[in-house]
Simulated assay, not measured.
Amino acid sequence: MKLQHYLGGLEGLGPVSTETRVFVETWETRIFGIHTAMMALSSQLPLPATPSAFSSIWTWADLRKGAESLNPFDYFKYRYYEKWLGGISGYFIDNGYITAEELDALTEEYYADPSIPVPTAGDQAIDDRVVQYLVEGDSPKREADVSFDFTVGDLVSIRNVPSVEHTRLPGFLRGKTGTVETVYDGAYVYLCDTGTDGIGAAMPVYCIRFEPEELWPANAETNFSLYADLYAHYVESPRAVAAQAA
């Protein structure tokens, strides 16, 4: 969630798309289906075995990292599912399922003759596993012994953690102050370790309430509050922030 992927509060970005359709083009449904099948086939849930050759791990985090690795100018140039396609394609290349040269050659074939039939395949075991995965889901909640540093009503500050590949912390919340609205029961993980960003082991999650004047001083309406669910690693005492500044 680097700058180009979370633009809250920024001005002068041009017209905003108000498209409400989930899928605008037919091919977008195929990209969504590929992504879903990849998650189901790599899931660690006790699901039926299949003859699929897909043997690596793919999660929402991998999809997001693939999109966020785009040059910011390319990111704004491509549509939503085009970014998905780029992330998925890069993953298959990086993990040895296809080479960049092979992918380029196939792309040129379809550019030259769009009427070429798209390869079809099907296996009931794979279909059953995908359906079961969609029904059962993958919960981020874990049974873990964790301590809760804050309670409802506490004033907290949001850290400015170093982010390299991926972060779950919106940029416009960094360094801001809010109030704990909810302390969620249990501990939660993300889909992968975010490295220097600090999300890995199971930890508490807090819902933090922010006032618009704190986020966008003298530049926002005042008849609303903004709420964000944040991992505990992103949240600290305002006293800790003051000590660091000193």
Rank of each mutant, 00 (worst) to 15 (best):
P162N: 03
S225I: 02
V22S: 09
Y80V: 13
F76T: 11
L85I: 07
D94V: 08
F150I: 12
G171C: 07
E181M: 06
R21A: 15
D193C: 10
E82D: 07
L41T: 11
D127S: 06
C207E: 09
W60I: 10
E236T: 06
S147I: 13
D128W: 01
V146Q: 00
L70Y: 05
A201G: 04
A144C: 10
D113P: 00
F23W: 12
V135G: 04
E213C: 08
V16G: 05
R168N: 07
I199D: 09
L173M: 04
A53F: 05
I98W: 06
H166L: 15
W27E: 11
L45H: 03
E214L: 03
V183Y: 09
L45P: 07
A246W: 02
L155P: 07
V161Q: 13
I199F: 04
P119G: 08
A246G: 15
A49S: 15
V164I: 14
L85G: 04
N223I: 00
C192D: 15
E214G: 07
E108R: 15
D127G: 04
V146K: 00
H35T: 04
G178C: 10
M38T: 06
D94G: 12
P140T: 00
V241L: 04
H166R: 13
Q4F: 14
P119M: 06
D138S: 13
E82N: 01
S115I: 01
F210T: 03
E143Q: 13
I88K: 10
A125L: 13
P117E: 08
A67I: 14
G175S: 04
V146G: 00
G198Q: 00
A240G: 01
A61H: 02
P162Q: 09
H233K: 08
I116V: 05
A202L: 03
G33E: 09
C207I: 05
T18I: 13
P212H: 09
D74L: 10
K141S: 11
R30C: 08
V118A: 09
F32L: 14
R209A: 13
R159G: 09
G9T: 11
G178D: 05
F92S: 12
A40C: 12
G87P: 02
A112N: 15
D193Y: 04
I57V: 15
A243V: 07
D128F: 01
L70V: 01
L13Y: 02
F150V: 13
I158C: 02
S163E: 11
T26I: 13
E25D: 14
S115V: 02
T26F: 12
E165L: 11
Q44V: 06
E108D: 10
D123I: 03
N160S: 11
P217S: 02
A245D: 03
G171V: 13
F54R: 01
T222W: 03
S56I: 04
Y133C: 02
Y80C: 12
E109G: 09
A61W: 03
R239P: 00
S17D: 10
P162G: 03
R174N: 05
N160Y: 11
S55F: 00
R21S: 14
D128P: 06
L191T: 01
I31V: 15
L226D: 01
H5A: 15
T26A: 15
Y81E: 09
P117G: 06
A242D: 05
I31C: 13
L47D: 11
G122K: 06
G137I: 07
A67W: 07
E211G: 08
D62N: 12
F92D: 06
P238K: 10
L47Y: 06
K83D: 08
C207H: 02
I116E: 00
P72R: 03
